[in-house]
Nucleic acid binder design. Structure first.
Lengths: 136, 136
DNA sequence: ATAATTGCAAATGCTTTGCTTGTGA
DNA sequence: TCACAAGCAAAGCATTTGCAATTAT
């Protein structure tokens, strides 16, 4: 029943407390990209006493350990998702907020190329598409 | 001596006050991407009485009028630049914070294609590269 | 045992806002 | 003139932090 996240904590030497296990559990069962408030709400159903400060501390810790990915989409508060095996980017529906993940190797390669042409080693990047659904 | 920004204000019916003119002037003379604090500092040299609230209100107004572009790069406060004629993206030096602008039509096209394949009309996007300088 | 973690509330940092006075068209 | 803008200080919002009590290893 241990989540992937718990395994990663052990590997990284992150102490596993009851609260951290719950945050890990909720996040590994979330298919979406909740913000801290939403995360706190979900975890509170399992432990009504957990404080939001702990949730903040936990996601920060997990993010620094490479266990979670943090996203600051335009106009929103920070959202989190379990750090994916394989990199992906996001398309955000500007009307509903719905998030779709996508991968495009060609864009990835071009980014690297652009950085190198400018004399940089590409260390990180952010690619977000904002769009509205085409009705058919 | 009127800046481009002043002309745009007239065209958009934005009332031109002394303070707004100064913010416009400073921004059109800035080659970089200052945050509000920095902008306030620069404008204060021309009018020591201008309040930072006015600077905040002005950049928001200008942004909504399409006169300025706002950027929220990772881990930083909001930065502004004069809205460019021709679209460009940014590469941020993770060591120095230095920002380099770039254009890559191929990436632009691919983004549109990706969005369409997912059933969306691309309305906006954000592409930021984070890198470290390659010494040679 | 004891160093790390929690909960709480207070503090922070950036940004916005209410209100009174000042001002551009 | 008079609707709108500026200045100031107070409020807001997401996030962080100090501290005393609790807990994992």
């Amino acid at each position: 029943m241990d989540s992937d996240i718990e395994k990663k904590c052990l590997k990284k030497g992150v102490r596993l407390t009851e609260q951290r296990k719950l945050v890990a559990k909720v996040l590994s069962e979330s298919g979406d990209h909740p913000d801290v408030d939403e995360l706190h709400k979900r975890v509170s159903k399992l432990d009504s006493k957990i404080s939001i400060a702990t949730v903040y501390r936990t996601v920060k810790l997990f993010e620094e350990a490479g266990i979670l990915a943090k996203h600051d989409f335009k106009g929103n508060k920070a959202r989190y998702e379990q750090a994916p095996e394989d990199h992906h980017d996001h398309l955000i529906d500007i009307n509903t907020g719905e998030i779709t993940e996508f991968v495009n190797d060609e864009i990835e390669k071009l980014q690297k190329k652009v950085a190198e042409k400018l004399g940089y080693k590409l260390v990180d990047h952010r690619l977000e598409l904002y769009g509205s659904k085409i009705k058919k």
